[in-house]
């Protein structure tokens, strides 16, 4: 299973970035091999608009199954859902710990976006 986590940096000890669309990086963790792939999101950090949608699209291209992030707005939510990516919001702390908590079934999937557009 591939778990994508929004991250403040590319470092394996990075903190979770609370924003989805404008997160500087996505860390994609393979739960079977513990391999980490880092995807840069710099193009969307400064996007005029639609950062969440484009971030969701690039995440879809990584074949991630799950997204762990702080917040997710309605357009990103819709796009991620279309891509079949399940979403966990309210995630914070270190990326590593978040992945562990996910593995221990400590999270619930979000049924709807938790913030409004342009949060």
């Amino acid at each position: 299973m591939l778990i994508a986590v929004t991250a403040k940096s590319a470092d394996p000890n990075s903190e979770v970035e609370p924003r989805f669309g404008r997160a500087p990086y996505f860390q994609i963790i393979d739960t079977e091999s513990d391999e980490i792939k880092v995807v840069e999101n710099s193009e969307n950090v400064n996007a005029m608009q639609g950062a969440g949608i484009q971030a969701a699209e690039s995440l879809a291209n990584t074949n991630a199954d799950v997204l762990l992030t702080g917040h997710c707005g309605p357009k990103a939510f819709h796009t991620l859902k279309t891509a079949g990516i399940r979403i966990v919001v309210g995630v914070d702390g270190a990326v590593k710990e978040a992945v562990e908590r996910f593995k221990n079934n400590e999270y619930e999937y979000a049924a709807s976006p938790d913030v409004e557009s342009h949060w």
Binding site: I53, E57, T82, A83
Partner: peptide, 10 residues
């Protein structure tokens, strides 16, 4: 304007 997204072929 990022008004379109391509997910798979949709």
């Amino acid at each position: 304007y990022n008004a379109l997204a391509l997910i798979g072929e949709k």
